[in-house]
Write a protein that binds this DNA or RNA. Structure first.
Length: 275
DNA sequence: AAGTATACCAACCGCTGGTAA
DNA sequence: ATTACCAGCGGTTGGTATACT
């Protein structure tokens, strides 16, 4: 039975298999702890569960989030009655339970998009995932490591050149800004462009794109997203995104377009000017 | 048929940056 | 200015299935 087949099992069978598996894992973990007397990870010390999720846990998490949303991941498991840490809940929701997750094989177009964006952005999986509706960063990362990387090696595609990098960047941005309405097939929809600009803001790497990101704080403020609280952050971001989509916030797009074109055209000057 | 290697993928871990106190 | 907390990100691990010898 393949992993994919397992996903399609009826819940009763799935439950039985998962339950059995969970027991085995728990026994194994306990005996391991007993044997080594090693310090157990914090989740287990707190009496929290680790490892694969059971269908019951999934059900609890889904219905809780559907009813109350996920304002505070840390508090969520306690409120929902789950013996999991917030981080684990968040991961499970984002990577598996979210209703808009697309299942099944990657299409040719998706593969091409991943390859192209990886050349452009490197291992910035969340940024890449933002361009692939329904796909998670984890899924894309896994797919990259298990399929695309090898294929790239086999075909010995040369690493992207600096000039090509700028050409690609230019092309993507032009595609993005050509249409005022978010087109389903365009590489960057308005929503995605907003996300892209935000992704740039949080970039940790010292790259040209990061230089762009540091300038982008102003743009965040422009869109009315000045100093959101931690809990409100995502909501405000969603709100800003929706607003942008509704109003087709061309000012912001124009701002980003100009900056990116400037960087793509003359990276060293831009770096100098930004210190 | 049994053992081993490889592929796949869910989940975990540790780090980072943003925010509030 | 400092500290603590939190969410999010990317790298890594570990379990299971499948292919190969």
């Amino acid at each position: 039975m393949t992993m994919k087949d397992r996903k399609c099992l009826p819940p009763v069978l799935k439950k039985a298999i998962e339950g059995e598996r969970e027991n085995l894992l728990r026994n194994k973990r306990n005996s391991e702890i007993e044997r080594t007397m090693a310090r157990a990870p914090c989740c287990e010390r707190m009496g929290l569960k680790k490892g694969p999720w059971t269908p019951e846990e999934d059900q609890i998490l889904v219905s809780f989030i559907q009813r109350y949303g996920h304002r505070n991941w840390r508090a969520l498991p306690k409120q929902a009655g789950l013996l999991r840490c917030g981080k684990s809940c968040r991961l499970r929701w984002i990577n598996y339970l979210r209703p808009d997750i697309k299942r099944g094989n990657f299409s040719k177009e998706e593969e091409e998009t991943i390859l192209r964006l990886h050349q452009l952005l490197g291992n910035r999986w969340s940024t890449i995932a933002a361009r692939l509706p329904g796909r998670t960063d984890n899924e894309i990362k896994n797919y990259w490591h298990s399929h695309l990387k090898k294929r790239l090696k086999q075909n010995s595609i040369p690493p992207i050149q600096e000039s090509d990098h700028h050409t690609l960047l230019r092309r993507e941005i032009k595609n993005a800004t050509r249409t005022s309405k978010p087109a389903a097939n365009s590489m960057f929809t308005t929503h995605q462009k907003i996300q892209n600009s935000e992704d740039m803001l949080v970039s940790r790497q010292q790259s040209r794109l990061e230089l762009v990101g540091s300038a982008g704080n102003e743009s965040a403020n422009v869109s009315g997203n000045s100093t959101p609280g931690v809990g409100e952050k995502n909501e405000k971001r969603d709100f800003a995104t929706k607003e942008s989509m509704n109003c087709e916030s061309s000012n912001v797009m124009e701002f980003w377009y100009n900056i990116l074109m400037e960087v793509a055209g003359n990276p060293t000057e831009m770096q100098k000017s930004l210190g």
